[in-house]
Amino acid sequence: MNKETPNEYKSVTAHYIKNELFRTVYVSGVYGGFTPEGLLNVNFFTERATIPQQITITPIQDGQRLRLEESNPVGKQGITRELQVGTVMSIQQAQALQIWLADKIEEFNRFNQ
């Protein structure tokens, strides 16, 4: 079986449009793994200090000023990782993303030497 390889590839114009749910988010990290179907699930999160569910606020007279003192925080301890967006992709797309990221990192390093 002899397959011919085209000598020239035709170019195609790609048009980018934003979905109504499109948004830009800051990413602190990533969490994920493989789905039962073998796709890669990648969840991007923003990491921050945990915000208490409630606190006690006590007004304190400090000379001529009144200040508010916060105490007795109630809620979860530790840090919060707020999931911003989840993606699911094939391993081939993950490899293409890996190459794209490596190229962008190399480009950044070239311009910042």
Rank of each mutant, 00 (worst) to 15 (best):
N2I: 02
N2R: 03
N2Q: 03
N2V: 03
K3D: 06
K3C: 11
E4T: 14
T5R: 02
T5L: 10
N7V: 12
E8Y: 10
Y9V: 15
Y9K: 01
S11M: 09
V12E: 03
T13C: 04
A14W: 13
Y16N: 11
Y16M: 08
I17V: 12
I17H: 00
I17Y: 00
K18C: 01
E20C: 04
E20P: 02
F22G: 00
F22C: 01
R23A: 03
T24V: 07
V25S: 03
Y26K: 08
S28F: 06
G29K: 12
G33V: 07
F34M: 09
F34R: 14
P36F: 13
E37Q: 10
L39C: 08
L39A: 06
L39D: 14
N41R: 15
F44C: 13
F45V: 12
F45T: 14
T46W: 00
T46P: 00
E47P: 02
A49S: 11
A49H: 03
I51S: 02
P52K: 01
Q54E: 11
I55K: 05
T56W: 00
T56Y: 02
T56F: 00
T58N: 02
Q61N: 07
D62S: 06
D62A: 05
R65Q: 08
R65N: 06
L68T: 10
L68W: 07
E70N: 02
S71E: 10
P73D: 07
P73S: 05
V74N: 15
V74G: 11
K76H: 10
Q77K: 04
Q77N: 09
I79P: 05
R81K: 14
E82P: 10
E82M: 13
L83A: 04
L83F: 13
Q84D: 11
Q84I: 09
G86R: 06
G86T: 07
G86K: 08
G86V: 07
T87F: 05
T87I: 11
T87P: 00
V88C: 04
V88M: 03
S90Y: 06
I91Q: 14
Q92T: 15
A96L: 07
A96D: 13
Q98D: 15
Q98W: 08
I99P: 00
I99S: 10
W100R: 06
W100Y: 05
L101M: 13
D103C: 07
D103R: 09
K104T: 03
K104N: 10
I105E: 14
E106A: 12
E106C: 03
E106Y: 14
E107M: 04
N112L: 01
